[in-house]
């Protein structure tokens, strides 16, 4: 998840296409991306809205899952895995959003053709669910859930790689106190993002149960083939096995987290996990 870049991008207040063009041109590295996006924007009316969205959670394996899914011949990929449309770019409208997706031509040759995107930040944003439903009430939602303690640590390591200077224990305390950093995003709420029950309750209020697939990251990591097949059957495409399951966006070599911090997190997440098990009728064993 290219969080650092995304943050800089959204803190400036320019709006509309011209503003966005100025943003892109402001950062010389983005010029080739903008140039590649322009023809897509021009053909936007020929493009379709996503049929499925992997909405989260951050650091739960969404990048790998998405890359495996688009390995299927009937699943078209978006222009970049994460579009950040429903949280940050929402004001640009659906015309803009369509530009990310394949044209209808694919659908002429393959009646089962679908496309989708995977923005993990959608899961922790307060308004994305409603916006997705308004854009496409038939969208299918895929959610990956990982042990929240592990997730929090992975989240912290990611922040540290992006230049976050507080220690893991300090970050947890900051979160508990509700302290906000400079350029704070939901990605900095490493504690709250793991309290899945609240988010899922809200999600089920907006989307029908049958349109949401909740997956366990642990199962996904140990047996990616089974999980990917579950997704294929949920999305209604032909069943097949991919040749290889390479790990995408890995965290690198890890230092173990302190025992004290782990216990603190486990204590924090216990009631949330209990609520989650009741909600889903399934025990993840965290």
């Amino acid at each position: 998840m290219a969080e650092g870049k995304g943050v800089v991008f959204f803190n400036n207040k320019k709006e509309g296409y011209l503003g966005l063009l100025a943003d892109y041109l402001g950062d010389i590295r983005k010029v080739p991306i903008a140039l590649a996006f322009l023809p897509r924007l021009l053909t936007s009316p020929l493009r379709s809205l996503p049929d499925f969205i992997v909405i989260g959670f951050p650091k739960c394996g969404t990048t790998s899952l998405y890359e495996y899914l688009v390995g299927h011949p009937s699943i078209g990929s978006a222009f970049g895995k994460e579009t950040f449309f429903f949280d940050h770019h929402h004001k640009k409208g659906l015309f803009w959003y369509r530009a990310y997706f394949p044209t209808f031509i694919h659908r002429l040759f393959d009646s089962a053709f679908i496309c989708g995107e995977a923005t993990a930040a959608y899961s922790t944003h307060p308004e994305t669910y409603k916006r997705i439903f308004d854009a496409n009430p038939k969208a299918r939602i895929i959610v990956l859930l990982r042990n929240p303690v592990e997730r929090a640590y992975s989240n912290y390591r990611h922040l540290a790689r992006l230049g976050h200077e507080r220690s893991f224990e300090q970050t947890i305390d900051d979160n508990l106190e509700g302290k906000r950093y400079e350029r704070h995003t939901t990605f900095h709420d490493i504690l709250a993002s793991g309290a899945y029950a609240g988010y899922l309750e809200k999600l089920f209020g907006v989307f029908p149960r049958g349109q949401v697939l909740v997956l366990s990251s642990d199962e996904f990591f140990t047996d990616p083939d089974a999980t990917v097949k579950k997704c294929f059957s949920f999305l209604g495409v032909r069943m097949l096995s991919l040749k290889e399951y390479r790990k995408f966006n890995p965290g690198g070599r890890k230092k173990e987290m302190g025992q004290e911090a782990r216990e603190k997190l486990e204590r924090f997440y216990r009631p949330h996990n209990k609520r989650l098990y009741e909600l889903l009728g399934r025990d993840f064993g965290w």
Binding site: F133, F204, G205, V206, F207, P208, R209, G210
Partner: peptide
């Protein structure tokens, strides 16, 4: 019903 229609 709740499989097909959102709870909200």
């Amino acid at each position: 019903l709740l499989e097909v229609v959102p709870r909200g």
